[in-house]
Design a protein around this nucleic acid. Structure first.
Lengths: 137, 137
DNA sequence: CTCGGTGCAAAGGGTTTGCATACAT
DNA sequence: ATGTATGCAAACCCTTTGCACCGAG
C-alpha cells in the first residue's frame, strides 16, 4: 500500500543487503529474525529495527512478498508474484503452491459492495518430512 | 485438534458465558478483547486470561471458529463450519464469504508429499462503508 | 476429596517507535 | 543543506503462563 507517494526514498546499503538476503534465501521463506542473522554477516552493526523497516518497505513496494502465519512470525518471500502457501504445523516449513483464484469469495465480497485488493490462502498440515518421522520413529 | 482425548473437561459458568458471548455476537466476529467486554457484563470478576483460555478451548473443540488476521488480533466466529473471510483494511470489519476449495494448492501440496489438514483464505480490501466515506467525504 | 479452572499479575514474543546521529541526495 | 534512514533501546500489543485459591465432578 502507499506504493504511489514515495517522495524521497533513499537507497541505502542496509536496504540493498536486506533485499539481497531475501532474494538469496531460496525456498527458506525466512522470518525477520532469520533475515537479521543473514544480514549481520555482511553488516554486523545493522539493527533489527532497520531490518524490520526495510522488509516492510520492500514488501510495500512489491519487491518481496510477506506471508502472514497465524501465531508465528511473518515470513518473507523472494517471489513477489501472486501465489499461495503451505505451512507445516510441526516444523514451520513453508512452501509455495500455485495460486487458487477464490471465485466464490470474490463474487460474494463484490456483491456486498466491498473492494477486494488482495487475497492470501494458507494451507496447513504436516510436511512430508514430519509425516515420515511421525510414522517411523 | 485433540477433540478426542478430553479426560476431565469441566463445564464452568465462565466457559458457558464465553461461548454464549461469541454465539450472540452476530456478524461482529469479535476479538478476545471484545468478548471480554461482553462477558464482563455478566461475570464482572472474570479475567482476560480465562477468556483467552476458554476461547482457545472452544476453538480447539470446534465449537467456534478462530480467524487469524495478519497484524491484528485473532477474531472469533460463532460459525464453526468451513468458510472464508473478507477483512476491511481500513476499519477491520470482517465478513464471512463462501469457501473456495483451493484445488491447485491442494494438488501441489499432496504431490510434494504433504498432508493438508485445513486451509484459510483471507480476502483483503476496503468495505462498502469505508469506500463510501473515501469517495464522498 | 481431587485436580482442572479461575483470577491476578507478571512474563513472553514479535514488531514498532522515539530519539539523536549518520548519511544519501 | 536537507531531511530520510539508522542504531539503540524502550515501548507496544496481543497472548500466554505461574501460582495460590476455588469449585465442579
Amino acid at each position: 500500500m502507499d506504493r504511489e507517494r514515495l517522495p524521497g526514498r533513499r537507497r541505502t546499503r542496509q536496504l540493498e543487503v536486506v533485499l539481497e538476503a531475501v532474494r538469496d534465501s531460496g525456498v527458506e521463506h525466512p522470518s525477520a529474525d532469520r533475515v537479521f542473522e543473514r544480514v549481520r554477516c555482511v553488516l554486523p552493526r545493522i539493527s533489527l529495527g532497520t531490518v524490520y523497516r526495510n522488509l516492510q518497505r520492500l514488501a510495500a513496494e512489491g519487491q518481496i512478498g510477506a506471508v502472514d502465519v497465524a501465531g508465528r512470525s511473518t515470513r518473507y518471500d523472494p517471489t513477489p508474484h501472486e501465489h499461495d502457501h503451505f505451512i507445516c504445523r510441526i516444523c514451520g516449513r513453508l512452501d509455495d503452491v500455485p495460486v487458487t483464484r477464490p471465485a466464490a469469495g470474490l463474487r460474494a465480497a463484490s456483491r456486498a459492495g466491498h473492494l477486494v485488493t488482495s487475497h492470501a490462502l494458507l494451507l496447513r498440515g504436516v510436511c512430508r518430512d514430519c509425516r515420515r518421522s511421525a510414522t517411523s520413529p
